[in-house]
Amino acid sequence: MTLQTQLVLRSLLEEPSKERYGLELCELVGLPSGTIYPILARLERVGWVDSAWEDPAVHEEARRPRRRFYWLNRDGAERALAALAGAHQPRRQPKLDWGIAQPNAGGAQA
């Protein structure tokens, strides 16, 4: 799981019953929209997150287009907690994997 996904899950878990829309999550997590929506879509595809359109009465009263709300379902909340617990160890510095041959790699081990 990527760090961004973890951040999104954490902020969804803060108030699991609260329904949030995409822009709200962008601000809450502090990640750009282009990162948040694919994560939400993936979480929805794997069945952790559910989504629905806003009630027409609410957004018409506020005179704006409707929003799509997202929330963690029960199953998703449990799985997210488990996954976050598993991912809690500090991550190693990611290695630059350009696969460039390291001529002296053998010598280092000797």
Binding site: Y21, G22, L23, S33, Y37, H59, R64, P65, R66, R67, R68
Partner: peptide
């Protein structure tokens, strides 16, 4: 998705 983003853009 386009509709969702149009909504976000408008606010």
């Amino acid at each position: 998705w386009l509709q969702e983003w149009a909504g976000e853009l408008s606010v």
